[in-house]
Amino acid sequence: MARFLLVARDAGDWSEAAGDISPEQIEAILSRYNTWSEKLVKAGKLEAGEKLADGEGRQLSAQNGLVRVLDGPHSASKEVVGGFWILNADDYEDAVKLASDCPHLEFGTLEIRKIEEIPA
C-alpha cells in the first residue's frame, strides 16, 4: 500500500456561476462526491482532502541569492489547482481505478502522483 496525491484542476470559474445554482443542484453535486468519497473512506482508501483557497497564490524563485516573489499563477488562461486528496492505493493501477469515478472529472482534470516513501 502506498500513498498517492490526487490533484484536482479546473477552470477556477466556480464562483462565477455560483449565484444561479439552486440548492437542489448543489445537493445533487455534493451527493455524487459523497457517494464517491464514502466508498473510499469505508475501504480505508481516502486519507485526507483539502480545498485550496480561490485566487492567485505566490510563486517563489531565487536569483543570485535573492528570493523573488510573484503573484500567481494567473488563472485566466489555464486550469488551476482547486484542491487535492491523498489516497491509499496498491499501485498506480489501483489509484487510477479509485479516481476514475471521481465526480471532479465532470468539471476538470485529475492528476495522480505517487508519494515517495523510503523505508527507513
Binding site: W14, A18, I26, L30, N34
Partner: peptide
C-alpha cells in the same frame, strides 16, 4: 445563505461533510 451553500459546494468535496 446562498454564499454558504456555494462554499459547501466548493469545500465539502475535498474535506467531506
Amino acid at each position: 445563505v446562498q454564499d454558504a451553500l456555494v462554499k459547501a459546494l466548493e469545500t465539502w468535496p475535498y474535506r467531506g461533510v
